[in-house]
């Protein structure tokens, strides 16, 4: 028995190390232009927060939540912007960049000639996307705290929630990328992403949606992420958040599994 189990246990750190080596490659590829794109990616949700949260918020005033708590519109929108930016950051890295590396640069064909396996590449790329997404989230939470849209303690608690959202979308993006045929498919994905952004309880409470949309939105992973982050930052955590966490963990696992399998199929021809 022992001899059967031991090699597997020994294989785990090796796989982790190989995933790390994929992240190392991305760190080595960091160049000035990429930095600019990364910093501007951080600014995007901040701009939305100021425009919609503060600008439009001035026209709205306070918002009464289903629980009866009244919050400023900016405090309501900010967590949704955080969740959305976790989504778009993770998707940018795992779809656009990932697809380019796989299909055009043939980067992974080279890596597969080494002991690194497809699943480990997927894990390494996702880990890298999370480093980037985590930095964005931390910065945004700092801004939210400074604007008094949440408390420092709640911001600390919301951080892992935002990272989880990033993992879910990163894994989903990678699985989707393996089905993409050309860049045109990415236009479609970007449109779907924007539609999710508009209708995931982001700008108004989902309770105010028409009935059909109200139930459809329950399926949206972004809605789950928004609900999770918002309930933490507004101090309204309840049992429903277990569903949110379970859903996002499920999406992450499923996405990674599909991505690993599809990559093996595409690359191990």
């Amino acid at each position: 028995m022992v001899s059967l189990v031991l090699p597997r246990l020994a294989a785990l750190p090796a796989a982790a190390a190989r995933s790390l080596s994929v992240m190392e490659r991305n760190a080595a590829a960091l160049r000035s232009a990429y930095w600019l794109v990364m910093i501007s990616g951080f600014l995007e949700p901040v701009l939305y927060l100021f425009s919609i949260g503060v600008g439009v918020g001035a026209l709205i005033g306070g918002l009464t939540l289903p629980s009866g708590q009244v919050v400023s519109y900016a405090a309501f929108v900010a967590p949704a912007m955080l969740a959305s930016s976790a989504m778009s950051g993770a998707l940018a890295e795992t779809t656009f960049n990932f697809f380019g590396k796989m299909k055009y640069v043939k980067l992974y064909d080279g890596i597969l000639a080494t002991p690194v396996r497809p699943f480990e590449i997927a894990l390494g790329e996702l880990g890298w996307a999370m480093l980037r997404g985590g930095a964005y989230s931390a910065g945004f939470l700092a801004i939210m705290t400074a604007m008094e849209l949440t408390t420092a303690l709640r911001a600390l608690a919301a951080f892992p929630a935002a990272v989880l959202a990033g993992f879910a979308f990163g894994a989903l993006g990678m699985a989707l990328s393996t089905y993409m045929r050309s860049w045109q498919d990415f236009d479609l994905m970007a449109s779907a992403q924007f539609a999710l952004f508009l209708f995931s309880g982001t700008f108004v409470p989902a309770e105010s949606y028409p009935a059909l949309l109200r139930w459809l939105v329950e399926l949206s992973p972004l809605y789950r992420a928004v609900e999770l982050v918002r309930s933490i930052s507004l101090g309204e955590v309840g049992g429903a958040q277990l569903v949110d966490v379970g859903y996002l963990v499920g999406v992450t696992a499923l996405g990674l599994m599909v991505a690993g399998r599809r990559m093996a199929k595409l690359l191990y021809k």
Binding site: I52, F194, A195, F199, F203, V204, S208, Y209
Partner: peptide, 16 residues
Amino acid sequence: LPLLTMLSFGVGVGAY
């Protein structure tokens, strides 16, 4: 997409 934006902001946010 602009149409969806109109629905989300104009109708959705507009209600508030």
